[in-house]
Design a protein around this nucleic acid. Structure first.
Lengths: 194, 194
DNA sequence: ATGCATCGATGCATAATGTGCAACTTGGCC
DNA sequence: GGCCAAGTTGCACATTATGCATCGATGCAT
């Protein structure tokens, strides 16, 4: 797990620095007005090198979201094996969001130009989550159930997150709404209690 | 509903011609190797005019799925009012997919570079579907339930579609898998029958 | 430590993407 | 016909993105 050599540590650091610089500039000037040249200059890195780390400005900006998604999956895998899938997901979400930078997240989620890349991030993590779910259930990752479960649960939590970010930050409310939606998925959309 | 003047008819025609040309060239040379210049030339339209219709090459290529998504929502709204939401969605999907161009769809879905834009299309249609669901249920479009229902159902059908496109085209199988997934959402992910 | 092999950083060239702007053309309407 | 609105086009320009060659830093075996 630990990074071994100086080389890899530097790479990680450079990547993080570029991501942070991108977010910092976006917060200051607005997502639309940040250029790769600015990000590279802020990090004191050649523009060409930026593109060795990220294939676009958008990818750098949603890297924070990608990291959170990875953390979510790691948390999910760390949950006790006996726990039901949706309960484990609920707890993993709560755990990750507790340490999330709401300001940056709101910036990313609200920027229309970042929507495609952000959704692409979720979609790629969807596969990893499906595998984790399959592992937990002792099923094949090629089964339909883990794939649908992963995709719909991630989507449901995305919807909750987007709505929550439109309100003043209140982590108790987020927890509550997450539980509500997970409950909805667990019990079935047909019996619409809420 | 009908297009009134020659102006609007021409605009519609130009848009369709650009979209078709983009897909035709993508089928012939591969998505990655098509340029806006080629698409414009194929349609005998100035490059600048292309950007009056689509903000990117990717947007033109996924315009076909955007049209299908619009058709899906129209079908959903046309279903009998008494029908349950998920049943109406299932039927709407079957109806739209029956007339779908599988070859083009497979091309679009399999192209990694089109993933972000394609997902963005689904996300924008998600809102429209949520409104349609809210209308059907006599609820507010701001409620959580219609939003989650629209988002998760669309996502589930995306997963089914993506998996189905990896197999030889068999519309009976698509119908079957759609029913299975809709049933899963309706009954709840917790009781995992399949 | 020293030399070597590998990997990353960088500059350069170049293709391609997008957008603002102004001139020109066409369609709709009286 | 003739006017006004809307669409098309060319041009200039900033930006994005990638291939390629080179240089320097790192890691490793001896």
């Amino acid at each position: 797990m630990t990074v071994v050599g100086r080389r890899e540590r530097k790479k990680l650091a450079t990547r993080a620095a570029l991501r942070d610089a991108a977010l910092r500039l976006a917060l200051r000037h607005g997502v639309e007005h940040v250029t790769v040249e600015q990000i590279a200059a802020e990090t004191d890195i050649a523009v060409r090198t930026f593109f060795n780390y990220f294939s676009s400005k958008e990818e750098a900006m949603v890297a924070a979201v990608a990291a959170e998604a990875d953390a979510l999956i790691a948390e999910f895998r760390a949950r006790p094996p006996g726990e039901p899938v949706l309960a484990a997901l609920r707890e993993a979400v709560a755990c990750v969001m507790a340490v999330s930078d709401t300001e940056a997240l709101r910036l990313i989620v609200r920027a229309p130009s970042l929507l495609p890349q952000r959704l692409a991030v979720y979609a790629t993590r969807e596969k990893a989550l499906a595998e984790a779910i399959a592992d937990r259930l002792g099923r094949s990752p090629d089964d339909l159930y883990p794939a649908v479960c992963a995709a719909t649960a991630l989507t449901a939590m995305r919807v909750v997150l987007e709505r929550w970010l439109d309100q003043p930050a209140d982590h108790a409310a987020l927890r509550e709404q997450t539980e509500e939606v997970i409950g909805l998925l667990a019990a079935g959309l047909e019996r619409r209690l809420p």
